[in-house]
């Protein structure tokens, strides 16, 4: 299991290929990538703040819970912080499992938890100023299905 919290961009293809190649015994690899939406051209940049130390701990705890709940061979979470331009990749999750249902479910679980339980905060920078992104009720509700 690898958790990377970084400001640098990552190579989605290279990360996915290396993850799949190292996932011995897996029959399924699922990857999810989150991008900065441009909000119809209104977004100039996205600034992501995080809580160094707690971020890595919280993600590791989520990944270890996912490993207990599903038959995972491996999991990967990369999440960026700092200033990102529209279209840039913010984060990726990859899961590897013997069968696809476990890989999909564990990836969704990790995504739902990353949204509301990993200490990141997004700020949208637009032409008219900057605004912190508010947490959505539906993101909190999404945790209840697990």
């Amino acid at each position: 299991m690898r958790v990377a919290v970084q400001s640098a961009a990552f190579d989605l293809g290279a990360e996915a290929a290396a993850f799949a190649a190292a996932a011995g015994g897996a029959g399924a690899v699922v990857t999810f990538t989150g991008l900065v939406r441009d909000n119809g051209g209104a977004l100039a940049a996205m600034e992501i703040e995080h809580y160094p130390g707690m971020t890595e701990r919280a993600i590791r705890a989520m990944a270890s819970e996912a490993s207990q709940r599903w038959a995972l061979v491996d999991a990967l979470v990369i999440h960026r912080f700092g200033r990102l331009a529209p279209g840039e990749a913010i984060m990726m999750v990859a899961t590897a499992a013997p069968h696809r249902a476990d890989a999909f479910d564990a990836a969704e679980f990790l995504m739902d938890y990353l949204k509301s339980r990993a200490p990141f905060w997004k700020k949208e920078i637009g032409a008219d100023g900057a605004e912190w992104v508010a947490a959505k009720d539906e993101d909190e509700a999404a945790l209840r299905r697990w």
């Binding site: 984060m91 949204k115 509301s116 339980r117 200490p119 990141f120 992104v133 508010a134 947490a135």
Partner: peptide, 10 residues
Amino acid sequence: VAFFPPMTGG
């Protein structure tokens, strides 16, 4: 101790 708004990761 850390204080912050609800998190918006992902």
